[in-house]
């Protein structure tokens, strides 16, 4: 332009048309590349947002009295127990000794770790064997048809 200080260039220059095409397609494509993730981002994902605070552990009536069931809570297993009186309790199913998964023993009405015979009572307290600490206890609420387990605040 009028104030340019560039020296005249040697050789043939790409035509104006070609440059405009390159620029136009580049801008168009890059805008698509920016808009596309944004739109995909705005569409909510299928997995509902209850990744680790609370989870539906079971449906009401799924568990018989005096039985237990392992469910996934975040990336760790948890144990839902239905007591003989029909009430629910939930615990972390990760044994505090060597991180094996514990289970509910219907015969002794206690929580048992098969790895080293660790025993917890139905309050999650370590009562026998190697476990050094109690199990983490979760809260259980029955909401309609769902048995919802959540971390204690």
């Amino acid at each position: 332009m009028e104030t340019s200080d560039r020296s005249p260039r040697e050789g043939p220059q790409p035509t104006r048309r070609l440059i405009n095409l390159m620029l136009g397609s580049g801008i168009l494509a890059s805008i698509v590349a920016f808009i596309y993730p944004a739109i995909r981002y705005i569409i909510p994902p299928l997995v509902s947002e209850s990744t680790s605070r609370s989870v539906v552990a079971a449906k009401v009536g799924e568990l018989k009295n005096n039985t237990g069931e392992i469910f996934k809570f975040g990336s760790k297993p948890a144990l839902l127990v239905r007591l003989t009186d029909g009430t629910y309790r939930a615990f972390s199913a990760v044994c505090t000794h060597l991180q094996c998964t514990v289970q509910y023993r219907e015969d002794i009405h206690e929580i048992w770790c098969a790895c080293h015979n660790g025993i917890y009572d139905l309050e999650g307290r370590n009562v026998s064997g190697p476990p050094p600490r109690p199990l983490e206890v979760f809260e259980v609420h029955v909401q309609g048809e769902d048995v919802v387990v959540s971390r204690k605040a």
């Binding site: 790409p14 620029l23 580049g26 494509a29 890059s30 698509v32 590349a33």
Partner: peptide, 11 residues
């Protein structure tokens, strides 16, 4: 796409 655009701008 970004590189193409930058190239276009440069030219």
């Amino acid at each position: 796409t970004i590189v193409i655009t930058i190239g276009g701008l440069y030219l």
